[in-house]
């Protein structure tokens, strides 16, 4: 599925908070159609990297080229047009709490696709069905939903405009193992059906083993290695060894292998 065409190219990225440097000369590519897992210890700047790519944070130095254009050099309108090709799922969903699930999903359709309210809400119901939510969830407000349902509703909103690149920040954090596995399968299905490229920040080893095509390891203020899981796991580095060959890593490896093969 994964082609070689590079959609997003991060070069020499530097992010600083006061005197603390989080990224120093970070390089990373995201290719069309792949699921790229980004891992790293707490505080290595995974979320900061995501925010830099989608344009929520202006890096201190370096370039982010998206679909061949430098996002930081573009004007407001051109940027907004590019950002519409992104879908972002925030860690805690970030659903608008004053709108129902259906209205949450219809909002970008009304604002950006120029649909009327009835059409937008009709299409929102399709996205709700696509993410495996029951239709009864459409009229609910976010505070009436469980954690797993919030994640699915937020994914439906991220998919509203049929984005080309999907950014997921810890999508399975806080879900039970069954819910997390179902969410992994959902992402895999949607990637295959919609031809998405997925940038996935995660701590969940099961997710890494079951759906990621490539894994990028963030450590020492840059991307230590970005390659297929086997090659990353074989890299000679203390942190990587502890991460992938600790007790949790081994267990995940044994369990997850079959999911990749099933269509």
């Amino acid at each position: 599925m994964a082609g070689d065409e590079v959609l997003i190219e991060v070069r020499g990225l530097v992010n600083r908070f006061g005197s603390q440097t989080v990224h120093d000369g970070l390089d990373l590519d995201i290719r069309r159609g792949e699921i790229l897992g980004v891992v790293g210890g707490s505080g290595t700047g995974k979320s900061v990297l995501l925010r830099s790519i989608v344009g929520l944070r202006r890096p201190n130095a370096g370039s982010v080229r998206v679909f061949g254009e430098n996002l930081l050099a573009l004007g407001e309108e051109a940027r907004s047009r590019i950002e519409r090709r992104f879908g972002v799922l925030f860690q805690r969903g970030a659903l608008f709490s004053s709108l129902t699930v259906q209205e949450n999903i219809a909002l970008p359709l009304i604002e950006h696709a120029g649909l009327g309210r009835d059409d937008a809400e009709h299409l929102a119901l399709l996205k709700i069905a696509l993410t495996g939510l029951p239709a009864s969830a459409a009229e609910k407000y976010p505070d009436a939903l469980s954690g797993g349902m919030i994640k699915r509703a937020a994914l439906a909103r991220a998919l509203a405009l049929d984005p080309e690149v999907l950014f997921l920040d810890e999508p399975t954090a806080g879900l039970d193992p069954i819910g997390a596995a179902a969410f992994d399968r959902l992402i895999l299905t949607l990637r295959d059906a919609l031809g998405l490229s997925v940038f996935l920040v995660t701590h969940d080893l099961d997710t890494l083993y079951s759906i990621c095509d490539r894994v990028a390891v963030l450590a020492k203020k840059r991307v230590l290695v970005a390659d297929s899981l086997e090659r990353v796991a074989a890299t000679d580095d203390d942190w990587i060894r502890d991460y992938f060959h600790g007790p949790r890593g081994r267990a995940a490896q044994q369990v997850a292998a079959p999911l990749q093969e099933t269509p």
Binding site: L125, A129, A135, D192, A193
Partner: peptide, 22 residues
Amino acid sequence: AERVALLRTVAAALDQEPIRDI
């Protein structure tokens, strides 16, 4: 193939939860 996958996924989703406008 990718078009078949898309149509199948959408069909399967709507098979389970047909759209009923509120």
